[in-house]
């Protein structure tokens, strides 16, 4: 048996899984559901979009999300201004009957980097309105501190651009954020494969949010399972504490009692 870990607590809500998973880009709703189960996730992100009025009888996404086990985290993806993001959050609240939101205010289409100025502006309004705000943000420690000070329930820095799968490109910046804020730090974006997830957790990040790495893998369900293990392994390794790196070898077997000497 592994030693106990404190559960992840966000805004007073307890999660035993430290993996947050998206609902986009899967080959089908059925595969998505299997991925959610295989990942062990307890929180999934969703987007708010116009209902397609011409596509009658389309299978609703929420038919494939087990809301008894999974907290919904609606996002404000594709919003480029604070006003649009706040408006989207109002719609999300009406849709999901919850005030939990992933705030995402983007700066440009090429990088999908956050516009931190607009993100901070929206966060101030939403926190004041009683929303539980989990903001996607840059890896800048000053912005992370500001978001935490405003009253965001977590901060979610990127590790690489959304959907890029480039892995954890900014371990030092993530460390600075981990040192500086008391709220959970959730890596949002950049993870490409299981070892990336483990690296983020070994740094001490509290959780990881990922979508494309699972949904666009050749075998999404297998990748979902790999990510579950990677997040758990990385977390355990962080708690266990890695050995210091040394320049030279250090024998694992005793040097005394060698045969024939």
């Amino acid at each position: 048996m592994t030693a106990q870990d404190k559960p992840l607590v966000i805004a007073g809500k307890t999660f035993s899984s430290r993996l947050i998973v998206g609902t986009g880009k899967y080959p089908s709703h059925a595969v998505m559901k299997q991925c959610h189960e295989a990942s062990g996730t307890q929180m999934v992100t969703v987007a708010v979009r116009r209902l397609d009025l011409k596509a009658k009888g389309e299978d609703a996404l929420l038919n494939w999300v087990n809301r008894e086990h999974v907290t919904l985290l609606p996002n404000t993806a594709a919003c480029y201004t604070a006003d649009d993001a706040v408006r989207t959050c109002h719609l999300a609240e009406e849709l999901g009957l919850s005030k939990w939101v992933k705030l995402e205010v983007l700066g440009d289409e090429k990088t999908l980097y956050p516009d931190v100025e607009e993100t901070l502006k929206a966060a101030r309004v939403l926190v004041k309105e009683g929303f539980t705000v989990l903001p996607y943000t840059s890896d800048d420690v000053i912005t992370a501190k500001k978001l935490a000070d405003i009253g965001c329930a977590a901060v979610m820095p990127l590790a690489a651009p959304i959907g890029s799968g480039l892995g954890i490109r900014n371990p030092h910046n993530l460390r600075l954020i981990l040192e500086a804020v008391k709220v959970p730090v959730i890596v949002d974006a950049g993870v490409g494969t299981a070892s990336d997830a483990a690296v983020a957790m070994e740094l001490g990040c509290d959780a990881i949010l990922m979508n494309t790495a699972i949904a666009a893998a050749k075998e999404p369900v297998r990748m979902a399972r790999a990510m579950k293990w990677a997040v758990e392994a990385g977390r355990d390794a962080f708690l266990a504490g890695r050995i210091p790196m040394k320049a030279y070898a250090s024998a694992s077997s005793p040097l005394d009692g060698l045969v024939g000497r």
Binding site: R49, L51, L209
Partner: peptide, 24 residues
């Protein structure tokens, strides 16, 4: 939802009907 029956539409109104879709 509780006000869907009492709120009436006027000429020129812009209505948005949205739902949850897949996203990250």
């Amino acid at each position: 939802k509780a006000r869907h029956t009492e709120v009436t539409l006027h000429n020129g109104d812009h209505i948005e009907i949205v739902t949850f879709v897949g996203g990250g």
